[in-house]
Measured scan of single mutants.
Amino acid sequence: DAPDEFRDPLMDTLMTDPVRLPSGTIMDRSIILRHLLNSPTDPFNRQTLTESMLEPVPELKEQIQAWMR
């Protein structure tokens, strides 16, 4: 099983494109984008959230890719 820090906190699946929300939570980009289609909010604190506020986490993405090899 993947380490917890590699798993999306909402869907508990392996992240492939991790992004940091303004709240500091790291999620998979595809999952948070799907959530934003229904509700333009951070799913953990209900603060306003837009796609432009998502910050890529390239170092975590590299760690996940290395773990998958």
Rank of each mutant, 00 (worst) to 15 (best):
D28G: 03
P40Q: 14
T16V: 13
L36W: 00
A2G: 07
L49Q: 00
V19D: 00
V57S: 05
D4L: 15
W67M: 06
E51A: 13
P22A: 04
L21N: 01
D17N: 08
L21K: 00
L37D: 10
E62N: 11
E59D: 12
M15Y: 02
L60W: 03
S52Q: 12
K61T: 07
P56D: 14
R46S: 15
M27P: 00
R69W: 11
D4V: 15
L60Q: 00
L10K: 05
E51C: 08
E51M: 10
I32A: 05
I32H: 01
E55G: 04
L37K: 14
R20T: 04
P3H: 05
D28I: 10
D12W: 14
L21I: 04
L10T: 09
Q65F: 13
E55Q: 12
E59Q: 10
P43Y: 03
P9C: 07
M11K: 09
P9K: 07
E55S: 10
I64H: 00
L54I: 07
R34Y: 09
L60F: 06
P9T: 05
E55A: 09
M11L: 10
S23P: 01
V19S: 01
P43Q: 02
L37H: 11
I64S: 00
L37A: 14
L37Q: 14
L49W: 03
E59V: 09
L33R: 08
S30G: 10
P18S: 01
D8R: 02
H35V: 07
D12A: 12
P58K: 09
D17Q: 05
I26Y: 04
M53W: 06
T13H: 07
I26T: 05
I31D: 03
Q65C: 13
A66N: 14
L33E: 08
S39F: 10
P3L: 05
A66H: 12
S30D: 11
P43G: 02
E5C: 15
D8E: 03
Q63L: 14
L33I: 11
M27V: 09
Q47W: 09
L60A: 00
L54N: 01
L14H: 04
T41N: 08
S39G: 07
E51H: 09
T41Q: 08
N38M: 15
T13Y: 07
D1K: 15
R7W: 10
M11P: 01
L33G: 05
T41W: 15
N38H: 14
W67R: 07
P40D: 10
Q63N: 08
Q47H: 10
Q47R: 10
P9G: 07
S30I: 11
L33V: 12
T16W: 11
Q65T: 10
N38Y: 14
P18L: 04
A66Y: 09
L36F: 06
T50D: 13
T25E: 08
S23A: 05
F44W: 11
L10W: 10
D8N: 02
D1G: 13
R29P: 02
N45W: 06
T50I: 10
P58E: 09
A66M: 15
L21D: 01
P22H: 03
T41E: 08
I32V: 09
G24D: 02
E55C: 08
I64C: 07
I32R: 01
A2H: 08
N45H: 06
S23I: 02
G24W: 04
M68Y: 12
A66E: 15
L14F: 07
L14Y: 05
S23T: 07
Q65E: 15
I64T: 00
V57P: 03
M27L: 06
L49E: 01
L21C: 04
P56G: 10
S30A: 14
K61L: 13
R20G: 01
E62F: 11
F44M: 06
R20V: 06
T16E: 12
D8L: 04
D17F: 06
P43N: 02
F6G: 02
D1Y: 14
I26A: 01
E55P: 01
D42R: 04
A2T: 12
R46F: 15
G24T: 03
Q65D: 15
A2M: 14
G24H: 04
M11N: 11
L37T: 11
G24Q: 04
T48C: 13
T16D: 09
R46L: 14
D12L: 13
L10A: 04
N38P: 01
D28L: 04
K61R: 14
R69H: 14
E59P: 05
P40C: 09
M68G: 07
N45Q: 06
E59I: 10
S23R: 03
L10P: 02
M27W: 04
T25P: 07
T16N: 10
L54Q: 00
T41F: 14
D12C: 15
E62P: 00
T41R: 08
D8F: 03
L37G: 09
P18A: 01
P43V: 03
A66I: 11
M15N: 02
H35R: 05
T41Y: 14
D1C: 15
Q65V: 12
L54W: 04
P3K: 07
N38C: 14
S30K: 13
R34Q: 13
N45T: 15
T16K: 12
I26R: 02
R69C: 15
R34W: 11
S23F: 04
R20K: 10
D12G: 15
K61W: 10
H35P: 00
L60H: 00
P43T: 01
K61I: 07
T13V: 12
D42I: 01
E51F: 08
M68E: 12
D1F: 14
L14T: 06
L10D: 01
M27K: 00
I31K: 03
L54Y: 02
L10V: 09
D1N: 14
R69A: 14
R20N: 01
F6E: 01
D12H: 15
V19Q: 03
P22S: 02
H35A: 06
F6Y: 12
L49A: 00
L60D: 00
L33T: 09
L49M: 08
K61M: 09
P3C: 08
T25L: 13
D17S: 04
T50H: 13
F44P: 01
R34G: 11
E51P: 13
M15I: 08
S30F: 10
L21A: 01
M53H: 06
T41V: 09
F6A: 02
R7A: 03
S30H: 13
F44Q: 04
L10Q: 05
D8Y: 03
Q65M: 15
D4E: 14
A2S: 09
Q63H: 08
G24R: 04
M11D: 10
L60Y: 02
D4Q: 15
N38S: 14
D1L: 14
A2Y: 14
Q65Y: 13
Q63D: 08
P3F: 05
V19N: 00
D42Y: 04
D12P: 03
M15H: 02
T48F: 15
D1W: 14
D1A: 13
E55N: 08
K61E: 06
L37N: 11
M68S: 08
I64V: 07
D1M: 14
L14V: 13
Q65H: 14
S52F: 11
P43A: 02
D28Y: 03
Q47S: 14
L21Q: 03
L49F: 03
E62G: 09
E62W: 10
P3E: 04
A2L: 13
R7V: 07
I26P: 01
V19L: 03
P58S: 09
D1Q: 14
T13P: 01
Q47P: 03
D8K: 06
D42C: 06
F44D: 02
M53I: 05
